[in-house]
């Protein structure tokens, strides 16, 4: 139970942090000049690998706390995960090497790689979430019995596009925070467009979920206070254009971070106590109870988390503080 929550926290941390740097990648090609594109990459330069560590740690925590869920999900989504890994590797490489050569073709090639890998990653995360809400064919031996193509069903793809639009919006606000002058004014227009796409997809996804996966709201009936989160989420979403109108980009960014946190939380509530829902029958579900490690391991992990996480949060905040302000290109830039 605690670990269900803690893995949710890691997932939230990951979605908020890597969400904006993936989003910057999705918007990357809108940057017109070489300088603009370098600013895009350098705005996330000092932080992106720290953000990806949330994913790695989330994977490690899932392995330790719910070995069965880790094993089933990762072997079941085999090709999807391999595609995701390839995308994440390409992203890292694209950022590292784009500005190493002045030739136009070299830079365009890596720009394209950066855009594609960021967008594919965002899409795949959404597809994974969609499949987890909907359920996947898990047999009695806890093994996945479907195929790769089955994972790309319409509902999962809708959630994938929703996630893509959410990260694009989140990334555009981050970029708005980090840029200045004429370029910032252009970024501002992207924020509105990404916001519009996000709101539309939010509506579509909500309706689709209610129609296609009625099971997703079963916990909401027992826990009326969850509606408070839903209401706060709507307020946070509404606050984004308001903050932008008053030119308070940091507030807009915090609002979109809250939106992501609320959505991950609602995803967790919808799922609980299941980790992976089996579409072949509820008795095959992997839950926080039947997929968990022993009590002793969970206690050890709790200690590790309580010792480690305060440090992690302290220096994550310290590093964002050190790199506050606008992104400029210097000799140490990408």
């Amino acid at each position: 139970m605690l670990w269900f929550f803690l893995i949710g926290v890691l997932l939230t941390g990951y979605a908020i942090l890597d969400g904006f740097d993936l989003g910057v990648g999705t918007l990357h090609l809108f940057g017109r000049t070489d300088t603009e594109r370098r600013i895009n990459m350098n705005s996330i330069g000092p932080v992106w690998d720290g953000n990806e560590v949330w994913l790695v740690t989330g994977g490690g925590a899932l392995f330790a706390a719910f070995p069965d869920a880790y094993a089933t999900a990762f072997s079941g989504f085999y090709l999807a995960f391999m595609l995701l890994l390839a995308a994440l590797i390409f992203r890292a490489v694209a950022m590292e090497f784009r500005s190493k050569r002045p030739q136009r073709w070299w830079r365009s090639m890596w720009d394209m790689a950066f855009f594609l890998s960021s967008s594919v990653s965002s899409l795949l995360f959404g597809v994974a979430v969609g499949n987890m809400i909907q359920g996947i064919p898990i047999g009695p031996d806890k093994e996945y019995v479907g195929t790769f193509i089955e994972l790309l069903n319409p509902y999962a793809l809708v959630v994938g596009v929703f996630n893509l639009s959410m990260f694009a919006m989140h990334g555009s606000i981050y970029l708005y925070l980090k840029t200045e002058g004429e370029y910032q004014q252009r970024v501002r227009r992207w924020v509105y467009k990404a916001y519009a796409a996000f709101v539309i997809m939010y509506g579509v996804t909500t309706v689709y979920t209610l129609l296609a996966v009625p099971n997703a709201t079963r916990n909401f009936e027992d826990l009326p206070w969850v509606w408070v989160i839903v209401a706060l989420n709507v307020l946070a979403i509404a606050n984004i254009p308001r903050a932008l109108y008053h030119d308070l980009p940091l507030r807009a960014f915090i609002s979109s971070a809250c939106t992501i946190a609320a959505l991950v939380f609602l995803f967790g509530v919808a799922l609980f106590p299941n980790l992976i829902v089996s579409s072949l029958g509820n008795e095959f579900n992997l839950t926080a109870y039947n997929a968990a490690s022993s009590q002793r391991t969970l206690a050890i992990m709790r200690n590790i988390a309580f010792i480690g996480l305060p440090f992690v949060l302290t220096y994550t905040i310290a590093i964002y503080w050190i790199f506050r302000g606008k992104t400029r290109l210097t000799a140490t830039s990408y």
């Binding site: 690998d49 560590v53 740690t57 392995f63 070995p67 880790y70 992690v312 220096y315």
Partner: peptide, 23 residues
Amino acid sequence: VGDVFGSALAAEGVFAFFLESGF
């Protein structure tokens, strides 16, 4: 092995990776 091996891997993430990539 998840019950045993996983905690070492998770400890690596919490204690090592964040430290390294952050600083």
